[in-house]
Design a binder for these strands. Structure first.
Length: 297
DNA sequence: ATTACGTCCTGTCGGC
DNA sequence: TGCCGACAGGACGTAA
């Protein structure tokens, strides 16, 4: 049947690794192809679509697919760039049926629930964006001025960029009274970390998430930078293997299920070697936070 | 400038 | 069995 969910991925909570996985999965479906038809099935997501959204995309070719923090960026041959944020539940479904002929009555099949935007391409699969909670959003912006786009302009460095280092983080932490986890989730400090990977990184760095950022010592900051990179790298690798598994499994859904060391593990023993503590769940800045009070200080 | 908090949205899950 | 509240959370808007 049409609207097959043959290719469906993205974790329920897209942070940098999940967005990167989506980018890699979407690349073969979109890059180099012309958008022949764009359909909006409602006037807004988190925000209203910009004026003439569908018209500005239609006919343009997707030059490449990039990622910046948690944003997907698709520069187009028209001189504008499609900007996508997945929010909480945003996901792309790739319809593997190449042409309408491949699927009888394809156009009579109902679209999946929450399918808000449909992209048709020349000789490529149909790509559908669905987002149950509509925390995601899309925008179109002049590529030459992309760095002035409000949401992109305020993003901090990429975690893998050399600019994100110990002295940078020390400056970002100085005089800040907010909890260190809260600071790491601030997209203007570093781009791409959310609630899950901030918790995971701090556990690895053995720093308590609620500790005031200004009270984090130099040595601890020195552990946080590589800890962030390690958790993100591992998760990106897990996403990559999900994509490969999907390709190998010929049609089975490729859900991105990465396992976490502390997130969602309240009451379980701390996985750090030699630590006898248990993972503690608390609420910090309104968000569920997991850490080991024994080895994170 | 910095911080805290409410808000949006709906599917899922546990308890009764 | 069904209902109902709690929960999940990124980023914005507002207020202090």
């Amino acid at each position: 049947m049409a609207w097959r969910r043959d290719f469906r991925y993205a974790s329920p909570m897209p942070e940098l690794p999940e967005v990167e996985t989506v980018r890699r999965g979407l690349e073969p479906a979109l890059v180099g192809r012309r958008l022949t038809k764009v359909t909006l099935r409602r006037p807004d997501l988190r925000f209203p679509f910009p004026p003439h959204f569908a018209r500005r995309l239609t006919g343009a070719r997707v030059a490449e697919l990039r990622r910046r923090g948690k944003f997907l960026l698709a520069p187009l041959s028209s001189g504008e760039t499609l900007i996508v944020h997945l929010g909480m539940t945003g996901r792309f479904l790739i319809d593997l049926a190449q042409a309408a002929d491949d699927v009888p009555f394809r156009d009579q099949c109902p679209p999946p629930k929450h399918a808000h935007v449909v992209f048709e391409t020349d000789n490529g699969p149909r790509v559908t964006f669905s987002d149950a909670r509509r925390f995601g959003f899309m925008d179109v912006f002049e590529t030459a001025n992309l760095s002035h786009h409000l949401q992109l302009a305020n993003l901090g460095p990429e975690p893998f960029d050399g600019a994100f280092n110990q002295s940078y983080l020390a400056a970002a932490f100085s005089a800040r009274r907010r909890g260190v986890k809260d600071i790491l989730m601030d997209q203007s400090v570093v781009a791409g970390l959310g609630n899950i990977y901030a918790s995971e990184a701090l556990h690895r760095a053995r720093v308590a998430p609620g500790k005031e950022a200004r009270r984090i010592g130099r040595k601890a900051i020195g552990r946080i930078v590589p800890a962030i990179r390690a958790v993100l790298e591992e998760a990106i690798d897990a996403g990559g293997s999900t994509l490969r598994d999907f390709a190998a499994a010929n049609g089975s859904p490729g859900y991105f299920q990465h396992s976490f060391r502390v997130y969602g593990r309240g009451g379980e023993p701390c996985p750090n070697p030699g630590c006898v503590g248990r993972i503690h769940r608390s609420i910090q800045a309104g968000r569920a936070t997991y850490h080991c009070p024994t080895c994170q200080e």
